[in-house]
């Protein structure tokens, strides 16, 4: 009998990463960091509301001119959007799949429960759900203007003020921004662990950085509706 000389086709790189928990977690970390990068620049841009309608609307207009003349007007945003959409979907799908697996790996609870045990993980899961709902609301509110009170195309400043002049607009926004802070607080540190950047020496610095960035992001975003409520921005 001849020896079998053909080895079975090795699994593809993407396939083996997708099937492994460590690989899925890597996808989650990278997509999370892409969203985080976007969120940081988004906050910078948003803080322009404090310089008045012209500055803010001018900035929103400028976003559409990035890359001109190589890119056509508005194309930059249309390049960013699919990347973000892919990140949100990959992040959500891997989070869902891993969470299901994690719950199945521990089907029976301990009779003697300790409260603090899975605080971070639970916060990440319900926080993720809140963020998903918020992202949908936020796009309907300020991008497509479907649910906006004012809905005036090309006038983001006025639309934003209109949204933050409603009680529900403020409630949804502030809840979500607290959730974002909690998510970044654990998520950034967790991503450093997942991507193998963390080490015993760096743990403290990474935790401080995660907590600090989380606080800056939450407070930064929340300052905008609060200022509208106080009449500082109108």
């Amino acid at each position: 009998m001849a020896l079998a000389t053909r080895t079975p086709r090795p699994p593809s790189l993407i396939g083996s990463v997708w099937r492994s928990t460590v690989g899925k977690k890597t996808i989650m970390a990278v997509s999370g960091l892409i969203m985080l990068g976007y969120l940081v620049s988004h906050l910078f841009g948003n803080l322009k509301v404090f310089f008045g309608a012209d500055d803010f609307n001018g900035y929103a207009h400028w976003l559409r001119t990035i890359g001109e003349p190589i890119l056509h007007h508005g194309w930059f945003l249309w390049i960013v959007r699919p990347v973000l959409l892919a990140a949100v979907i990959l992040h959500g799908v891997t989070a869902y799949q891993l969470s299901r697996r994690d719950l199945a790996a521990r089907p029976q609870k301990y009779a003697h429960q300790r409260k603090e045990q899975s605080y971070a993980t639970r916060t990440m899961r319900w926080g993720g759900v809140i963020l998903t709902l918020f992202i949908i609301w936020h796009i309907l509110d300020l991008t497509t203007l479907t649910v906006n009170e004012r809905a005036e195309e090309g006038h983001p400043y006025e639309n934003l003020v209109a949204s933050f002049s409603t009680w529900y607009g403020n409630t949804i926004y502030i809840t979500a921004m607290i959730a974002v802070g909690l998510h970044i607080r654990h998520g950034l540190w967790s991503a450093a662990q997942t991507l193998g950047v963390a080490s015993a020496r760096r743990t403290r610095a990474l935790k401080i950085a995660s907590n600090g960035l989380a606080l800056v992001m939450s407070c930064g975003f929340i300052s905008i509706p609060v200022s509208v409520m106080l009449g500082l921005v109108d």
Binding site: A105, R106, A120, T121, T194
Partner: peptide, 9 residues
């Protein structure tokens, strides 16, 4: 073996 994933808790 059916172990769960790490969430860095």
């Amino acid at each position: 073996e059916g172990f769960g994933g790490c969430t860095n808790t």
